[in-house]
């Protein structure tokens, strides 16, 4: 007797979103699927894409990162080139962390200048992240939107600032990353609000906030899964590609603490911590992963087989 497994089919399809590249670069296209991740059934026109983060502010790098990206500290354009041509990042997430008054305190115009430098240094798609300070970001996003010499994505638009970020993106033809704090309803609401403003859906990514392994990953996993199921079930506002930023994985003590020899080599540990977080996000349904360790670009890209 043969048993035929029941294969669920979904009425919805995830909207296809293109992260545009500069001249000579390859754009990243994600979305377009009508099935759950990694499974054989359904259409998966685009495999998830793995990109790398570039931070502009001063920071103490965990041992695993210090040895590989440490040498590029203070030179975001050089790091950008290395990420793309050396390590295979398909897109860049440029965090203007240096504009935060508590971490470098670069001026808004300095941040905009860095965006221009990075865009000049590489043709790969770029997502530009704010510094996390509400006041500064309120000035930073319009400045970045104006300074960017080609279309980028602005990260992120949330309930408080979405009008400003969307306005800046509309003015200069950029996309936005809609952000919600691990909450499917807010994720939906912020997308609804963006749609109400007339923001084109094919220029929106969802960032559901990614907790690192051991520090909230399970919540993220569940939310990513539910956002994707809702999208596939026909909820247009959630039928959008999902971006998981793995930066939080490095905030775990286990990923960076070298003072615990019993936990094994801290460099390997850190890399694995990020990798495990990324693998879980892929399994949950992420379309875009942002990592920091070059080795993980390769490992996660291999895992993202469809």
């Amino acid at each position: 007797m043969t048993v035929s497994p029941s294969i669920p089919t979904f009425p919805g399809r995830i909207l296809e979103v293109t992260l545009p590249a500069g001249p000579g670069g390859s754009p990243v296209v994600v979305g377009g699927q009508n099935a759950l991740p990694l499974l054989p059934e359904g259409d998966h026109p685009h495999a998830p894409a793995v990109g790398m983060e570039i931070r502009t502010g001063p920071e103490e790098l965990p041992p695993a990162l210090a040895e590989v990206i440490g040498p590029f500290s203070g030179n975001p354009a050089a790091l950008a080139q290395k990420c793309v041509s050396g390590w295979g990042a398909r897109f860049l997430f440029l965090s203007l962390s240096g504009c935060n008054p508590d971490a470098g305190g670069q001026g808004v115009q300095d941040g905009a200048a860095i965006v221009r430098e990075v865009l000049a240094a590489t043709a790969t798609p770029v997502i530009v992240g704010g510094c996390g300070d509400e006041d500064v970001d309120g000035r930073l996003f319009p400045a970045v939107a104006e300074a960017a010499t080609r279309p980028v994505f602005l990260s992120y638009a949330e309930e408080k600032n979405y009008r400003l970020v969307a306005g800046a993106a509309l003015a200069y033809g950029h996309g936005v990353v809609s952000w919600s704090p691990i909450d499917i309803n807010i994720a939906k609401q912020i997308n609804l609000l963006l749609a109400d403003l007339g923001f084109p859906g094919e220029r929106v990514l969802i960032d559901p906030l990614t907790g690192g392994l051991g520090y909230g990953l399970e919540y993220t996993y569940s939310i990513v899964e539910r956002v994707r199921l809702a999208g596939l079930s026909g909820d247009a506002m959630l039928a959008r590609p999902i971006l998981c930023h793995l930066g939080d994985a490095w905030k775990a003590r286990e990923a960076s603490d070298a003072s615990e020899p019993g936990w094994g080599d801290s460099a390997l540990r850190g890399r694995r911590w990020e990798e495990a977080t990324g693998l879980a996000c892929l399994a949950a349904g992420a379309d875009l992963l942002v990592c920091r360790h070059p080795e993980n670009v390769k490992r996660l890209s291999e895992a993202a087989w469809r």
Binding site: P142, A145, E146, R163, L164, A166, G167, A168, L170, A171, Y172, L197
Partner: peptide, 9 residues
Amino acid sequence: RKLGIFMVD
């Protein structure tokens, strides 16, 4: 463009 951002905002 500059002013429009604040109108949307």
